[in-house]
Amino acid sequence: MKRKNRRLAFIISSVGLLSIASLLVLSALRDSIVFFYTPSDLLSREIEPDKPIRVGGLVVTGSVVHTEEGRVEFKITDTENAVQIHFNGLLPDLFREGQGVVAQGTMLDTGDFEASQVLAKHDETYMPPEVAEALKEKGYWQQQENK
């Protein structure tokens, strides 16, 4: 084997080994890398009360209640389980029923969630308003509209 080929083989095999090593590390860290838990995750794992966590899912249609003290109550779901969220603060513009959101806060003893911050998740679909209207008329629309 010529020297340059040996160098090339060495580089390629090092990169290969390094990728395997990082894959192993990343899959070991899987639980800490997720940005939020789903409502089902909350049930299946032990969550310490008062430990700040994030929980994400879709806002359940018809569950949003604005109380007189300026608080917002709503449920979020991963379509299997749901969790009740209590929040006192500013909601992002994209927040509405059926929208994906991520709430940051702590679990209460009651099993409800007290959020200190609510973020809206945006999906990967881009279309002009007219197209969205047309899709809705044809009944291709799965999302709840609440503007």
Binding site: I33, F35, V102, L119, D123, E124
Partner: peptide, 10 residues
């Protein structure tokens, strides 16, 4: 691989 706030590829 992980759930993120950032949306997936369009």
């Amino acid at each position: 691989w992980w759930n993120t706030l950032h949306q997936p590829a369009s």
